[in-house]
Design a protein around this nucleic acid. Structure first.
Lengths: 144, 144
DNA sequence: TTATTTTGATTGTCATACTAATAATTAATT
DNA sequence: AATTAATTATTAGTATGACAATCAAAATAA
């Protein structure tokens, strides 16, 4: 089982790299004096791109589970970046919307966030990106 | 900044896939009735491969920080899978060693864990593995 | 030797995950 | 229409992860 031993390492590498990426972004966010986390950013950006969504949709789009989404939204609400509006016809559901401050925050942060993201791709090509994407998607699918 | 938008997606994909891998392993562990987590497994395996180590070495080898390692070791100790032995010359340090049960656990689990790991690589080639490794390492280095 | 710095481990805090369980509401079934 | 099933969101419990601060012990410098 030589093969298994070798491939087993992918999971550590994957985990380490994913953590490094988040850690780097977190560091930069802090250096820039921003009070939100990367995961909170992802939610804001999603709302900015897609418009108002309910929590289920937000959770699905950002690949987070519902309890996590509830908490992220609680935190963003405290910071006045989003608001929970009641759904017109479904009383179980909330519509999440960016506030004025939330929208401004996204627009202020976006260029810097893109710089942060690009940093990881230095010295990597477009083909690398395609390969990377293909392999990640394949792994994801294999485990679903 | 079309490029940035496109490449930005890698971070989500990376995060999602890494989480999926952990989640899948966690599920399988539970289905098999094992009471340890993936991260706890990593520590046990490390001790099995490398022999007794102190907590600093364990943390470094598994890419975890010291507080996290302290906690994982606490949990493994409660389960009687490892023991903390005092260092012969350095009274700050502990030597962590597998117990008999810990060693047996690793040997019992190893084949299944390898199956779990291999599952992710279905339909992927050895070249894919090399590419994947190269890109992950490159990203990691870019952010260090 | 004494003072300073470094190191190994721990504790505390906050945020994120996964799971299970629950409440409230809506949809589907009979 | 009444019952049952499914859905939306929440709460609670456990684990991990990053970071800061602390303690004790060891190493180094003065």
């Amino acid at each position: 089982m030589q093969e298994a031993q070798k491939y087993s390492r992918y999971s550590f590498l994957l985990d380490q790299t994913a953590r490094r990426v988040k850690q780097y972004a977190k560091q930069r966010f802090r250096e820039l004096g921003w009070t939100i986390t990367i995961d909170q950013w992802a939610v804001l950006k999603q709302l900015y791109d897609k418009g108002d969504l309910n929590q289920r949709e937000l959770a699905t789009n950002t690949f987070k589970d519902h309890p996590t989404m509830t908490r992220i939204i609680d935190l963003l609400k405290v910071k006045n970046l989003i608001e929970r509006k009641s759904h017109p016809t479904d009383r179980r559901s909330f519509i999440i919307a960016l506030t004025f401050e939330g929208r401004a925050m996204v627009e202020d942060c976006l260029p810097e966030v893109q710089k942060i993201r690009m940093k990881a791709w230095e010295n990597l090509s477009d083909e690398d990106f395609q390969e990377f994407k293909r392999i990640l998607e394949s792994i994801y699918k294999n485990l679903s």
